[in-house]
Design a binder for these strands. Sequence first.
DNA 1: CTTGTTATTGATCAAATGATCTATAACTTT
DNA 2: AAAGTTATAGATCATTTGATCAATAACAAG
Lengths: 221, 221
Amino acid sequence: MPPQASDCASPSARKRLKPDERRSQILDVAVAFFAEVGLDGRTRDLSERAGITQSLLYNYFGSKEALIEAVFERVYLDRLQPEWRVLLTDRAIPLSERMQRFYEAYTRVIFTYEWMRIFMFAGLAGAKLNLRYLAHLRTSFLEPMLAEISASAAPDLRAPDMEDIWALHGAIVYIGIRRYVYQVPTPEDDAPHIARAIAGFLRGFGIATAGEAASPCQAVT
Amino acid sequence: MPPQASDCASPSARKRLKPDERRSQILDVAVAFFAEVGLDGRTRDLSERAGITQSLLYNYFGSKEALIEAVFERVYLDRLQPEWRVLLTDRAIPLSERMQRFYEAYTRVIFTYEWMRIFMFAGLAGAKLNLRYLAHLRTSFLEPMLAEISASAAPDLRAPDMEDIWALHGAIVYIGIRRYVYQVPTPEDDAPHIARAIAGFLRGFGIATAGEAASPCQAVT
DNA sequence: CTTGTTATTGATCAAATGATCTATAACTTT
DNA sequence: AAAGTTATAGATCATTTGATCAATAACAAG
């Protein structure tokens, strides 16, 4: 076994794949590549990483723009699980636990180098991807979550609204931004961070969290 | 008065400025330019916006890299006001009000199209700018703020740590990310958003906020 | 007005980039 | 094993890009 780079990096070893496989392999490499260097990354560098020639890219993608669109699809399509909505609205489970489980699942999906950075690159580039995605996120999960919180909130306090939800969301997502965009050290385990953010948030609306037994903040009768 | 673009866009009207002025004018344009299109923006486009030739740029900046470094300096240097630290540690003022005033001043500085986007571009590009900046922010303001919060926190609850501060920070900063990076609609006035985030945060550590008279959550004796 | 200084231009270079096209060789079918 | 199919490579094109430099004109000094 020759000591060579992981893939088919041996010179002039022309390896012939079926179109579907090749396209998929290119996309795998492209996701990692564009996440690292940005959407302005050069097609020649990409092809080199993929172990193919640059011209071959154009056999599978009509243009660089089409390639990037395919990257978007691979990274963002169908990663939001519809069952999260079921979870969030299942009143047999304490609200704080529902939110905790949702955000743990959600961050498991989006807290990756590729997801975070490509999302930022796309937003800065003005791609409409972000608008579509955030709208989908809001209607599918955040608004149901808001409804659940409102239903549990203490009636004598200010009622929560969508901006409160975005603040909670930001508190949780910001750790991913620090980790993958600014690339500063962050705690390895996200669960405690999520738990704290949710507990503080719910307490602010007079909702006891699972951990604390009949919190002294309980404002309802 | 000919109906032309704001600046000196009239063709071949060579306007001669003193070096300091020209350099400053180029930087003004460069800040707006790179914030919009990213650090990969073309020097020709930039020079066109500035109403000068591309070659003139190299009279004032040795390279594109040097130009971008100057842009960083203009946007981030000396925008963090030392008196904020004085404010944060002035125990004659209620803690919630100190934090409120700090974050209102801070967001007034960083919630601009240029600041937010260049910071993101720099982070994604791997510039060390972000590391330096966040380290400075932490030691100069966030750590003193944490000390003040710890001093006021209810002793029977979990003590706050730096990650709690980052969560609060994220909740507040995230609105700027939505506004200038993702470019989705956000409330015009940031003060209420900040107030809510701080109030919820402090309540989580058993600290009453200015607005609420002797909060029912007061956990201390 | 004349002269000297220099901010600015316009032409230009070498390298890089997205994209195209034909020849080649790796599979499949018979 | 021979023929057919097509995935792939290599050469190449037209632009674009950061950068350079000599020529020019705007302003200042006398």
